[in-house]
Design a protein around this nucleic acid. Sequence first.
DNA 1: AAGTTGACTTTCG
DNA 2: TCGAAAGCCAACT
Length: 110
Amino acid sequence: MPDAHPIADFGAAVAEVVRSIPPAHAMTYGDVAAVLGSRASRAVGRVLAFEGADLPWWRVVRAGGWFPTGHEQRALEHHRAEGTPLVEGTAGWRVDLRRARWSPDVEDAS
DNA sequence: AAGTTGACTTTCG
DNA sequence: TCGAAAGCCAACT
């Protein structure tokens, strides 16, 4: 698996996974953590808060498809622009994980 | 070295 | 079905 930069930190691994998410798709924090072999969903959020400046963090959502706390509006704008399947709920808009959920190990086998 | 925090998840009431 | 509590992992103090 060719990678331009050395990956040795949890944050770097999270960054790679998030970047591997194609448009119109999304993953949950738990899924990303599972890909890394851990359940550190919280640590994933922490990484996105720091590295997310250059990452499509809006493609990573909470369990159920809702956007991260405090960034719902920001993520919503991105998803509307990307064309991610959204569903309207009483609490607002959420990602339709039934269609948008995606795993990096399915198509990105390199 | 030990305790607290956090862009979370899951289970029990 | 909805709400609160405990659980987990990694980073920071």
